[in-house]
Simulated assay, not measured.
Amino acid sequence: MITIDGSEGEGGGQVVRNACALSLVTGEAVRITDVRARRSKPGLMRQHVTAIEAACAIGGGECEGLTVGSSEVTFRPGRVTPGEYRFAVGTAGSTGLVLQTVLMPLLLAGAPSRLMLEGGTHNFGAPPFDFIDRVFLPITNRMGPRVDAKLVRHGFYPRGAGRIEVEIEPAPLRQIEGLARGAALGVSACALFAGLPFSIAEREIAVVRKDLGWSERESYVRELPEDQGPGNILLLEARFEQATEVVSGFGRLGVTAESLARQACARMRGYLACDAFAGPYLADQLLLPMAVAGGGAFTTVKPSEHARTAAAVIERFTGKRTSFVQQEGGEHLVTVA
């Protein structure tokens, strides 16, 4: 059994998700201590419990300590069974993070699967659906499998009640390299809102047009039905021949529309200013499929502690080491081998 100290490195929920996914892929049982020890509210939250429950369901696994607030869990995997599954977080907890836990095992299963995930789709602290659909899954599909995701209903914090549907056609993962993102194809900005004043989204788009110089054609406001709110997110997208980046700013109490937009614009400028293939969040998520594929390489901006923590967990299960080497242009070459 592998034992992982959940307080090491970034010390968040990613340790739990990656450990359960890798446990199912490798067949190795895992014990995680000091779960989310570096968070303001340590221990498992509802979305982490749902993610582990999902891992148990698809893999015939068993888990000790599976309660909200638990600081130690032991996961014993069984055999992954493809099929049709529905998992509901029950809060605004992220559907995308639940998907991260079960996706790799189902990509290697012997038959297609269909998932219905209910909860948050656009909430702070997790990749929004748009990032998963337009940034991460296209790279995953390039590795061999076919994954199609559909957003049925938006789910914002604190209400949740969103739903996504995912179709998975499994295939062996092949190694790829993402060293250059290619020529620029276009940019867009969307201020998405529901059950809130229209002026909030207008102010966000005004900042985008001023800070990034994007035109009216490239930046717009979209209002959702009021019953899907209240909620607000600003999505900035940059498309290239080989990669796409989506930067998001989440509307929250106490954060002005202008502040949210300026922070998002600064992050997008940072990505556009270098030649890296992957932004920081895509870099985090590429490590797991590349390790399962047996290796791979890509360039990214400065690696986060999140990515380095993921690399450490992955090495414990697979023996694959990840190197982060800064290049002359400022970007980093990440190699999994």
Results as ranks from 00 to 15, higher is better:
residue 239 R to S: 09
residue 2 I to P: 04
residue 123 N to R: 10
residue 314 I to C: 10
residue 316 R to N: 10
residue 184 A to Q: 06
residue 300 T to Q: 12
residue 121 T to F: 10
residue 281 Y to Q: 08
residue 75 F to R: 00
residue 288 L to S: 04
residue 6 G to V: 06
residue 330 G to Q: 05
residue 221 V to Y: 08
residue 225 P to Y: 02
residue 115 L to V: 04
residue 8 E to P: 03
residue 94 S to R: 08
residue 307 A to T: 09
residue 207 V to S: 00
residue 157 Y to R: 01
residue 52 I to Y: 03
residue 85 Y to S: 02
residue 229 G to I: 10
residue 321 R to T: 04
residue 231 G to P: 13
residue 66 L to A: 06
residue 16 V to A: 04
residue 264 A to Q: 12
residue 172 P to G: 09
residue 252 R to D: 03
residue 274 C to G: 15
residue 46 R to L: 06
residue 81 T to G: 06
residue 171 A to E: 11
residue 189 A to M: 10
residue 303 P to H: 02
residue 77 P to H: 07
residue 121 T to Q: 09
residue 169 E to H: 14
residue 244 T to H: 08
residue 31 R to F: 09
residue 294 G to R: 09
residue 169 E to V: 11
residue 305 E to A: 07
residue 230 P to W: 11
residue 266 A to C: 09
residue 29 A to L: 04
residue 234 L to T: 10
residue 12 G to C: 05
residue 318 T to Y: 09
residue 153 R to A: 00
residue 292 V to T: 08
residue 249 G to W: 04
residue 319 G to D: 12
residue 286 L to M: 08
residue 93 G to T: 03
residue 264 A to G: 07
residue 79 R to P: 00
residue 325 V to P: 01
residue 121 T to I: 02
residue 178 G to H: 05
residue 305 E to W: 06
residue 254 G to Q: 06
residue 157 Y to H: 02
residue 23 S to E: 12
residue 301 V to M: 15
residue 98 V to R: 06
residue 39 R to S: 11
residue 203 R to I: 00
residue 26 T to L: 11
residue 207 V to Y: 01
residue 23 S to M: 09
residue 53 E to T: 07
residue 331 E to Y: 06
residue 84 E to T: 15
residue 271 Y to T: 05
residue 34 D to Q: 15
residue 250 F to T: 11
residue 12 G to S: 15
residue 260 L to C: 02
residue 333 L to N: 08
residue 36 R to P: 04
residue 22 L to V: 02
residue 139 I to L: 04
residue 190 C to T: 15
residue 136 F to L: 02
residue 283 A to C: 05
residue 230 P to M: 10
residue 250 F to N: 10
residue 226 E to P: 12
residue 59 G to F: 01
residue 72 E to Q: 12
residue 5 D to G: 11
residue 115 L to A: 07
residue 262 R to S: 15
residue 300 T to V: 01
residue 201 A to H: 03
residue 170 P to G: 14
residue 82 P to M: 01
residue 144 G to K: 08
residue 188 S to P: 03
residue 308 R to M: 15
residue 90 G to A: 13
residue 111 A to E: 07
residue 222 R to T: 07
residue 281 Y to N: 10
residue 293 A to M: 03
residue 211 D to I: 05
residue 146 R to M: 12
residue 320 K to Q: 14
residue 326 Q to N: 03
residue 44 L to T: 06
residue 330 G to N: 14
residue 146 R to V: 11
residue 306 H to V: 02
residue 313 V to A: 08
residue 316 R to G: 05
residue 113 S to G: 05
residue 190 C to W: 05
residue 71 S to Y: 12
residue 20 C to G: 05
residue 152 V to G: 00
residue 115 L to D: 01
residue 44 L to I: 11
residue 262 R to P: 04
residue 304 S to P: 13
residue 263 Q to C: 09
residue 120 G to N: 06
residue 59 G to N: 01
residue 259 S to P: 04
residue 201 A to S: 01
residue 287 L to P: 06
residue 268 M to Y: 04
residue 263 Q to A: 13
residue 107 L to M: 13
residue 58 I to L: 01
residue 225 P to Q: 09
residue 28 E to P: 08
residue 232 N to A: 12
residue 104 M to Y: 02
residue 174 R to A: 14
residue 173 L to E: 13
residue 152 V to W: 00
residue 105 P to C: 03
residue 59 G to T: 00
residue 230 P to T: 10
